[in-house]
Each structure stands twice: as C-alpha cells, then as structure tokens.
Amino acid sequence: MIQAIGDKIDVYAKFSKGSLIPQGFTWKQKDYPLKKLNFSFRKQEGLTVLLYYSALGETAAYELEFNLKTFIWRLTKAYLPGS
C-alpha cells in the first residue's frame, strides 16, 4: 500500500562523494532510521528543484522530498509491505 503524507520532517543526512544521502528522519517525535537508499530522482517546478529519495526503513519504505530552495524536507509517501 502506498500512503501519501506530505508532512514536514527533520532529516539527518550524509554528504559523501558529491551526494546527499539521507540516513534517517524524525516524524511525529519518532525516529526512523533508514537502512538503504533505493532510488533518487529530481523534479523541477519553475526554478525550484525538488530532490526525491526512496529509502528502506525498518518496517516500511519511504519517499522523502528535499526542496533545494527552502531547504525543507517532507515525508511524501510511505510504502507499506503487503501492498
């Protein structure tokens, strides 16, 4: 099942070899560590660039959005097992 969310989140990330790799995030005061980055892509709305990261957590996979203009992270989707 895919759940659309859209909430603002706090993210901790690693900058390595020219890449930004999210390591985990805090959502509703709970910590969600990320185990593996599955996929990333970017979109552009006018001059605003949005980076998307799909990563596997402990109980679900998540899509995070990073707005390069505002520096705001959002949890955009949760991919739940058994879909």
Partner: peptide, 13 residues
C-alpha cells in the same frame, strides 16, 4: 521497473 525500483514492496509482483 522504475516503480519497483522506487518501492521495494512492488518487486517480483
């Protein structure tokens, strides 16, 4: 396949 890459729970389905 891109969708399966993004969402691992779709793989092999």
């Amino acid at each position: 396949t891109v969708e399966q890459q993004e969402n691992p729970y779709l793989r092999a389905k």
